[in-house]
Amino acid sequence: METEDLASVLDATWFAADLAPQARGRLAALGRLEEVADGAIVVQEGTLCESLGVVVSGRIALRLSLPGGEDRTIITVHPGDIFGWSAILPQRIATASAVAVMPTTAVMFDGAELKRALAGDADLAAAIYERLLVSVARRLTATRTQLLDLYRPGNEPW
């Protein structure tokens, strides 16, 4: 896919929408559009996390494996949002597995490449890191709410 086309694909996502034209072009040049088959494991928990992805369509489940072999889906990532942010963290070790639970399209960015590009472009870095922060904060809020277990059955007084 041409960079121009990828730029418009990115523009339709929450994560990369409304970037300045130059920053958007820069980002699009780094990404590649990938089709992920239903059931494919995009990132494996505990291994090197190479790429950060922006979901364009479909659904990615983030899963943790529990003792005893049972997997637990912690959260699902929906079109517009990102997964694999470990790819641009210093350790680059995936903290969860990312599994496509339906045919999914994502724009993938090589973590090392993206990091280098951000280091060299303060404007792009400011925009992208802020969006990352928003995404992380939303994920954290969701996790806290899940921890509260709001729908937990409790004893009623009657």
Binding site: E70, R72, T73, T76, H78, V101
Partner: peptide, 16 residues
């Protein structure tokens, strides 16, 4: 809020 791997639907909180 929570699901095993057999669930292919969305997982998270309702506001998402």
């Amino acid at each position: 809020d929570r699901a095993g791997p057999e669930w292919l639907g969305r997982v998270g909180i309702v506001t998402q």
